[in-house]
């Protein structure tokens, strides 16, 4: 898909994150276009999740800029980030569900906080989300009664329930069985068709290929390869080939 003439929704410029003496991200630059799905791949611990979390203000960068719809949000305060978080959703890796609430109340949380919908409308929306993610009948269960994969799917459902413009998925298919992996991919594709723009952090190249328009390989704090999934497969980039084939190489 050509990006010419498309609006840039997220732009990361010269982005650095360090914890103490340890530099995690070292000068990342990329743009995310409207309607696009970008897969961020890379070994564990290279800072993929930190990059996603920074976009919704859950981590602070050491240097660099983050633009969301041309607005510099890098130094936004917590209250200023609230409006950003209404249009940029972050689906946590482990679901991050509220343990004291049922699945229903977890899903209702953002709707009750940010909309004026009555309970019957909220119930309809929740039922539909749960059906879409193969979770019907779980409404009254508590997160600790669900498997890890189910918690992850409820977490994704909660983050997209407000129909955000941009969705950041943190390893949405890790730990899911093949059927639910496919189900999750279909849901991401459905949301893209509805106009959502997304970034997908994943180790699963097959999912990246099925769902994403572009793939970026993160290594040693920087993006070392990028392109369409089918092009990257044919690439002569050794680091990328090592990552895809699961051989040690530069890793």
């Amino acid at each position: 898909m050509s990006n010419a003439g498309r609006k840039i929704l997220i732009e990361i410029k010269d982005f650095y994150v360090s914890f103490g003496d340890k530099s995690i991200l070292k000068g990342i630059n990329f743009k995310l276009y409207e309607g696009e799905c970008l897969a961020l791949i890379g070994a564990s611990g290279v800072g993929k999740s930190i990059l996603l979390r920074s976009m919704v203000g859950l981590e602070k960068p050491s240097r660099g800029k983050i633009f969301i719809e041309d607005e510099d949000v890098t130094h936004f305060t917590e209250s200023e980030f609230i409006k950003v978080r209404k249009k940029v959703a972050y689906a946590f890796q482990g679901g991050a569900l509220f343990q004291s609430m049922t699945v229903y109340d977890n899903l209702a949380f953002p709707l009750r906080a940010h909309t004026q919908l009555n309970e019957s409308s909220i119930e309809k929306i929740i039922k539909k989300e749960l059906d879409d993610l193969n979770l019907a009948g779980c409404e009254e269960k508590y997160p600790q009664e669900l498997s890890g994969g189910m918690q992850k799917r409820v977490g994704v459902a909660r983050s997209i329930i407000m129909s955000p413009k941009i969705i950041l998925y943190d390893e949405p298919t890790t730990g899911l069985d093949p059927y639910n992996t496919r189900n999750m991919e279909n849901m991401i594709l459905r949301l893209q068709k509805r106009g959502a723009t997304s970034i997908l952090v994943t180790h699963d190249m097959l999912s990246a290929k099925r769902v994403c328009d572009r793939v970026a390989l993160l290594l040693d704090g920087d993006i070392r390869a990028r392109g369409a999934p089918q092009d990257l497969e044919k690439s002569h980039n050794k680091l990328l080939n090592h990552f895809i084939s699961g051989t040690k190489g530069g890793y």
């Binding site: 979390r53 917590e78 209250s79 609230i82 978080r85 972050y90 940010h114």
Partner: peptide, 9 residues
């Protein structure tokens, strides 16, 4: 973090 990410305080 989830509370913050969901736009609440």
């Amino acid at each position: 973090d989830a509370i913050r990410a969901l736009g609440s305080s």
